[in-house]
Design a protein around this nucleic acid. Structure first.
Lengths: 277, 277
DNA sequence: CCGGGTGCGTTTAGGGTGTAAAGGCCTCGG
DNA sequence: CCGAGGCCTTTACACCCTAAACGCACCCGG
């Protein structure tokens, strides 16, 4: 769009300048932007975490259960997951799962943890900052975004589920990443207080943006899955909302990539300003 | 995601002390900051959205059902709500509800809508900007925050549930507020594009921040509700995280009010800058 | 006055869910 | 060879959502 100031601090930005700008005419919303580098389909390295052995082997263990649950939720959505279905998926009776998983709630915790742990397998995200703190934040944000887009049905759980360390405000799932974050900042000029402030601002921005993005994506996907949604049906009671009607082209445009980039950059700039004071 | 706040029928009550309220000590501070103006207990005026007739009258209608559901979720948490329980609450069999509510999912939509509609009853939030656009944004943000804090167990639904107009990106629940937002900005110097950009940035900031805040609040409340949480248990595997341990005082401090204020102000400044270019 | 709708709540029923408890099978170590 | 676990299945219970049929009380036109 317009003003596009990258952080001058680090020319080796992991993400090239977003210059998609081109939009499919007719206001049609195609959620799969082929230029979005965080979309799973556009990822180069085939990082298939789930080693789907097609024949339902007889070896049952917690990891296999949880990863099957992840795949099942990815495919059918969270509400469809039940112990019985998951058992069937594994060629086993529901009760067998209870030898490895104490309860359904616990299973969901495991699902969240496993998905969050995909960050460790992401070659573009470093646990330790190698090219400065702002590069670190950029990479981490895109890594988390990749996870969100890869598991849109699971990501809301990350935000909703009670966290591991309740006394961390705001709480995030992975203590290891909190530690990594704080370390990256405190070793790069941030005071303790500044690092904590930065952590709060960063995590709430990231969560909010991705949750919204995933929600709208889920809707689009649901619409495909469940094609009773007449496209004109949503336009029904729009009589009283002239501005929404007028701005429909802009509103229905998928600017999530650009908006994400811009907000992230702004946040980082804000943190940089904080550093100078 | 448990809630413990009563419906604000009687705001004159000071901090509500739960009967089983053995206060859990430990690192978690008291989440009820008596200086936070958005907390329901610190609110002055009476916002009696829920007309709760104490005796279970025989008149059944959709509004009464939904508002009872809101109260029930506020008190017992979302997972405890079932048609049977809600029926019992209303002195009626579960199936009776189906004359007014097509299904449970629909009921939850109604719950979200009712909670969002509390904005209209908020005397401090104007549908039209009276003191400039930035005052409008401030008031709106605090109004939404008040709702989130009044219904911590319900607010995650607002973010999670598929929206009314899927083609609005990002989608928010209330078309009326989207319209109001766009109107406020476009009549105060914003171009159409700028207004849409502002809408995106604003809504994702607000959602992210409040979701995080409500989640951490829910945790603290859960700890009271369900006192199996040994305060030392959270400190279990903290051996490998020296920074978290060192920054524990800062991290466990409840800075949500200040952080909210600061982020909101920063966002508004950013929008103001956009206006000048 | 009456008799049939009509609105509203209840009963019944069927399939689904989480999970506690007990029962079978099969493979090991002594 | 035999007992002991480990691993999975069976059974059972309580609860869930909801479709369908049923009663009951009212109202309203004849």
């Amino acid at each position: 769009m317009q003003g596009e100031h990258m952080t001058p601090e680090d020319p080796a930005q992991p993400v090239a300048a977003t210059q998609e700008g081109q939009v499919v005419a007719g206001g049609v919303e195609d959620p799969d932007d082929p230029t979005d580098p965080d979309l799973p389909d556009n990822r180069a390295g085939g990082t298939e975490v789930l080693a789907g052995a097609q024949p339902p082997r007889r070896g049952l263990d917690r990891h296999r259960i949880v990863s099957t649950a992840v795949a099942y939720i990815d495919e059918h959505g969270l509400p469809k997951l039940s112990m019985r279905k998951l058992g069937k998926e594994l060629g086993v009776e529901a009760m067998a799962l209870y030898r490895y998983v104490p309860a359904r709630e616990d299973l969901l915790d495991g699902v969240v943890d496993m998905v969050v742990d995909e960050l460790y397998a992401d070659p573009d995200v470093y646990l330790e900052p190698r090219h400065g703190w702002s590069d670190y934040l950029q990479r981490l944000a895109h890594g988390v975004r990749r996870i969100a887009l890869a598991h849109p049905a699971i990501f809301p759980l990350v935000a909703t589920r009670p966290p591991a360390a309740p006394w961390v405000r705001p709480p995030l799932r992975s203590l290891r990443w909190v530690e990594s974050f704080l370390s990256a900042l405190t070793t790069h000029g941030f005071t303790d207080d500044q690092a904590v402030v930065a952590y709060r601002a960063y995590s709430s921005f990231l969560l909010g943006h991705l949750l919204l993005e995933v929600a709208q994506r889920g809707v689009a996907i649901n619409a495909i899955d469940d094609p009773d949604g007449n496209p004109d049906a949503s336009r029904h009671g729009l009589a009283g909302y002239p501005l929404i009607v007028r701005l429909e082209p802009e509103l229905s445009q998928d600017e999530t990539v650009a908006e994400f980039e811009e907000s992230l950059e702004n946040l980082i700039n804000r943190l940089a300003d904080m550093l100078e004071d």
